[in-house]
């Protein structure tokens, strides 16, 4: 398994922006209170993630590999929790680049990540507006 971390996997375009199954399972955790929990989680995500994106942008700009991997790890984790699989995947790659000090690769991935983040937030806001 160690080999998996040693190389950089090619960018994959996971088309699932927001996995509805994961959304449902969060919603189902507290069915009594409707979408309250989901909304709270999504708001938290929006607040947390925007900060993490900013930290990654700054770290890439500063070429701080360690900060890149830290922030990317957190973004990977919190996006996975709400089913933002595509964003989580990119964050994971970003984390690996950071860990491997592949700063050029990280910079190249930056646009992709920002774009995927935009798409994810749009989806989330749609959900929030629905409820």
């Amino acid at each position: 398994m160690g080999t998996k971390y040693s190389g950089i996997t090619p960018e994959s375009d996971n088309s699932i922006i927001l996995n509805q199954i994961q959304i449902s399972s969060i919603r189902d955790l507290d069915p009594a209170n409707g979408d309250e929990l989901l909304n709270k989680i999504l708001h938290t995500f929006l607040e947390t993630s925007i900060e993490l994106i900013r930290q990654i942008e700054e770290a890439v700009k500063n070429e701080n590999a360690e900060d890149i991997s830290h922030a990317a790890h957190s973004l990977k984790s919190c996006s996975a929790n709400i089913g933002a699989e595509s964003l989580s995947e990119i964050a994971k790659n970003m984390e690996l680049y950071g860990r491997a000090c592949e700063l050029e690769q990280a910079r190249q991935l930056m646009n992709n990540m920002q774009q995927r983040y935009q798409e994810t937030t749009i989806e989330i806001k749609k959900l929030l507006n629905q409820s």
Partner: peptide, 12 residues
Amino acid sequence: DDAIVRCLMQVA
């Protein structure tokens, strides 16, 4: 340290 995890774990 992940607020989402804390929140979901608490509820679950």
